[in-house]
Design a protein around this nucleic acid. Sequence first.
DNA 1: CTGTTAGCGCATTCAA
DNA 2: TTGAATGCGCTAACAG
Lengths: 351, 351
Amino acid sequence: MGNGRVTVVDIAKAAGVSKSTVSLVLQGSPLVNEATRAKVTAVMRELGYVYNRGAANLRQSGANSKIIGVVVNDLTNGFFAELAVGVDMVVQSAGFVQFLANTSENLDRQREVIASMREHGISGLIVSPARGTKASDLKPLVAAGIPVVVAVRQVPGAKVSSIVSDNHDGLFAAVRHLVALGHRRIAFLGGFRDTAVFMERLQGYRDAMAGCDLTPDEALVIDAGPSRAGGFDAIGRALALADPPTAAVCFNDAVAFGACDGLRAAGIEPGKDFALIGFDDVIEAKTAVPALTTISVDPQGMGRRAAQLLLKQISAGKPEAEAIVASVRLVVRESCGAPATPETAQAPQAG
Amino acid sequence: MGNGRVTVVDIAKAAGVSKSTVSLVLQGSPLVNEATRAKVTAVMRELGYVYNRGAANLRQSGANSKIIGVVVNDLTNGFFAELAVGVDMVVQSAGFVQFLANTSENLDRQREVIASMREHGISGLIVSPARGTKASDLKPLVAAGIPVVVAVRQVPGAKVSSIVSDNHDGLFAAVRHLVALGHRRIAFLGGFRDTAVFMERLQGYRDAMAGCDLTPDEALVIDAGPSRAGGFDAIGRALALADPPTAAVCFNDAVAFGACDGLRAAGIEPGKDFALIGFDDVIEAKTAVPALTTISVDPQGMGRRAAQLLLKQISAGKPEAEAIVASVRLVVRESCGAPATPETAQAPQAG
DNA sequence: CTGTTAGCGCATTCAA
DNA sequence: TTGAATGCGCTAACAG
């Protein structure tokens, strides 16, 4: 029945030893008699003692708090939830705990949570930054010698480690794939133009189109929210064009799902009458649309790598983190054999 | 250029006052001269001072750490991610921060993270328990006077507040709805039998079936993982029955999505040739399958309510939390006009 | 209104 | 091997 707060002195008293001895037992020091250690641990269990990391951390000059902060821009998005899970895995395994906050793309909130985390003495930070995050937002952290790794989105001038997917090459490969299948009118659907990720992917799209001697048509680039609803909207606008596409590569899987919904609503079967490729790997993408080709970036793996990167920096005690960019491998998982020519696409068309 | 760690004495020295004065400024005390307060805050900003909550908390006898722990059984599931987001909202607004951990349904890990959270001095805990969680797992917390609220799943003998959805009535209503549409062979798909949630929902299903004079057929109760893959599997087994169902209510939305996939794979259009109802509210359920009827329980709202419940207990300083059960309202959002009789099911569509 | 003193729970010297 | 001091950064009492 451990009621109130039990401290080392309490258990020292009860075990008939001094506080220091208890402290040594706590950190598994080999300098303590096995018999006394057993007695101490027994008393600890009996009295319901709980280690006070705050106090310990305070004494150790605030070095390692064993807590790492994780801030994501949208936990509602399966991708970022998986990312957080990946981080959590290695963080927990390393004996750390995770301070997780969701910013909902809100810069003010992001500032708040990061400040709050600093007050709690995080020993490192992993952040999937909100749109518009500037290097100055991360500056105080690195100035204080707190390791920071940025994931998913890059922050322009920040001197921190980062891990992002190879957006350009991923989209480049996707477009080449579609062209190889015979498609010539290929749309790029979804995403916000003011993000670096969008521009990188768009550039991959454009480069691939240009490399295949396809006439660039800006009307085929349709930005929309990076969500299912956005995809639904985007495909609708695409199909409404005078010269609609026969294939599309989507900003992410959520958009691709929405595009599937939209195609079905228009009486077009995705993967059969229309080729679709999605970027990113939201939960269980393969069962969502069996015929959907995806460029996969494993969010959990990304989270794990980010965490490993951070832990390495923490243990290295490196004050200023170098700017390391780790590319994630992109792979086309399934082949999508959609017909390409206008003749085959004309059948049940719903212009 | 705030380099090393700046403390109150540093800023006191720089501002030409004493530590206490700085402390008073920190907590916004009205007992300090406006001029000195301005000077102190200016120096704080200049030196890049960061408040050390650990030390403050230590001095205050470990009362309020301003951190609340959140443990969920599966952050990969959109429902729980949304739940965490809901919690985060009110927690952040109240000036607290969230310690979030994912247990992946692992009891050992759950014990670990809860222990870790205690060491860090959480002032409250919200937990969506892993399968098999026993009251004894929460006992130490309540014994230590730490408020705990259990969400989503109940823990049998635990003397803690809890917030769960009205599983029985939700499923009861769903079945009645399908019966009203003319269905008689109604399956119950997905979920694990060893959870209280499953049994409650199953009981609702059975009670509704019995109330409608429908012969109970245990073959129509098909358990499977509460995931998209599980739903895909379950519907496959259902359709393979000698006397297959014409409608189904699913354990959750993920299962329902999987069931949709399975139906389509079998050439059956969900919401047209087969009526489907999903429980729970995963992200953007409405766009996933336009015709899918859902029993909705808003996970974010649930998270918010859980957090409010917890904060109330924290502020009330209530040592032993009473067992409060808060029901969540369940609503059928859309009507699903699926044909019921075998005769109409063979025609393309029936009025 | 501001300065002084004294710990919060722990780990780290130093002696014994 | 173990016990007695000391201080981490901060707040809570009282003094001035």
